[in-house]
Amino acid sequence: MSDAAGEETGPAARAAPLTDAGAFAARLAPGARLLGLDLGEKTIGLALSDVGRMIATAMTTQRRGRFRDDAAMLFALVEAQHAGGLVIGLPLNMDGTSGPRAQATRAFARNLLALRDIPILLWDERLSTVAAERVLIDADLSRRKRAASIDSAAAAFILQGALDRLRAFQ
């Protein structure tokens, strides 16, 4: 929906993915968990916070399919885990600019918001996969086990970074 000047109005204009942790924190219900996502081209790594929003725990990795199927899976998890918001890793380039993957991530978040008004924080994920891989190597996991769990570990790393920042707003 647009006004005479072509500006977006209505729910789509109000519901936008956030990049400001303070604005995100203001939209969260007390005691609601957060679901962390590491969006890849083929998979979605998932992590979940505790109700105190102190600790992120890697959950699982899901194969990506059509957007509607991915959204249905995510919203089912939101309901089942009583999640009050999503933290989605934003894959910025090392110089802080946005490339095609960052644009695709923003579009994914906007499309989710078109289906349901839920707080979404886009969180800088630079080097999250590298950090997650180091943790898995330190845990002495085999290459095969690392490959199976890297996306959910990266999601946990992304979510933990956001949780650490959100503590400033409690």
Rank of each mutant, 00 (worst) to 15 (best):
L136N: 03
Q62D: 06
Q81N: 08
L113H: 07
M1P: 10
H82D: 15
R134K: 13
G96F: 11
D95E: 10
A25V: 06
P17W: 07
R68M: 11
F169T: 09
R116Y: 01
R165S: 13
A162P: 01
M94I: 12
L39W: 04
V51G: 03
R167E: 15
Q62F: 11
D138W: 01
A76Y: 04
P91E: 10
A148G: 07
A56N: 09
M54Q: 15
L90A: 09
R106Q: 15
R101C: 04
M94R: 07
I88W: 07
Q62I: 14
I120K: 06
A168S: 12
A109S: 12
R66I: 01
Q170M: 05
A5D: 12
S49Q: 08
A29E: 15
L121N: 05
G6K: 02
A26E: 14
A104T: 03
F108C: 03
A32F: 00
A21I: 00
L92P: 02
L115P: 01
A168H: 13
G40H: 07
I137Q: 14
G65S: 12
F24N: 01
L92W: 10
R64M: 12
D20A: 13
I158P: 02
P119A: 13
D164W: 01
G85T: 02
I158D: 07
G161W: 06
E8I: 05
L34K: 03
A32Y: 00
F108K: 01
D138Q: 14
R134P: 00
D117C: 04
F157Y: 13
G85L: 05
G84N: 07
G84C: 07
R27H: 06
P100C: 00
S152G: 00
T105F: 08
S152C: 15
L163H: 07
F169D: 12
D138V: 00
Q160Y: 10
L46G: 05
I158F: 06
A47Y: 03
L18C: 02
D69K: 11
A114K: 10
I120P: 03
L163Y: 08
I158E: 10
R146Y: 13
G161H: 05
F157Q: 15
A16H: 05
L74P: 10
A109E: 12
V51H: 10
L28N: 08
K145M: 14
A155Q: 12
N93M: 14
D70F: 09
M59E: 15
P17M: 10
A104K: 13
T60Q: 14
D117P: 00
K145H: 15
N93C: 03
M73G: 02
L115W: 01
A148T: 03
L77Y: 13
A102S: 14
G52A: 15
M59S: 12
T97E: 09
I120Q: 05
R66H: 12
S2P: 00
E41S: 14
D50G: 06
D69Q: 14
K145C: 07
A4L: 14
D164P: 00
V135R: 13
E79K: 03
T60Y: 02
S98N: 01
G84I: 03
G89T: 11
A58E: 13
I150E: 06
A4V: 12
V135M: 09
G65C: 04
D151Y: 06
L37H: 07
R53I: 09
A71H: 09
G52C: 04
D70R: 08
S49T: 06
T97D: 08
R167Q: 15
G84M: 05
E7T: 02
G52H: 12
A4N: 08
L159E: 11
H82F: 08
D138G: 14
